[in-house]
């Protein structure tokens, strides 16, 4: 697992109070991990803070699964 993926996973475990094993790439924040609309906004904010990026709202709307978050961040975070 990439460094980004493991940091994303840690944030999700912390914020959504889920078990690490549930945080698979296919897992949807709302359908599988119990997030509501506010949780999802908070997760995006936490990703922005952790990786020091700004995720525009139209981009944030495309991030619905763990894998989508990791892919977005791997593409947009400066190494």
């Amino acid at each position: 697992m990439s460094d980004i993926a493991s940091r994303v996973k840690a944030i999700i475990v912390e914020k959504l109070g889920v078990d690490e094993s549930e945080v698979t790439p296919e897992a949807s924040f709302t359908n599988d991990l119990g997030a509501d609309s506010l949780d999802t906004v908070e997760l995006i904010m936490e990703f922005e803070k952790e990786f020091n990026v700004a995720i525009p709202d139209d981009q944030a709307e495309t991030i619905g699964t763990v894998g989508q978050a990791v892919a977005y961040l791997e593409k947009n975070v400066k190494a």
């Binding site: 506010l38 908070e42 904010m45 803070k49």
Partner: peptide, 9 residues
């Protein structure tokens, strides 16, 4: 303005 979405509720 980076407020937590849970701030108001």
């Amino acid at each position: 303005p980076k407020f937590n979405p849970f701030f108001i509720p």
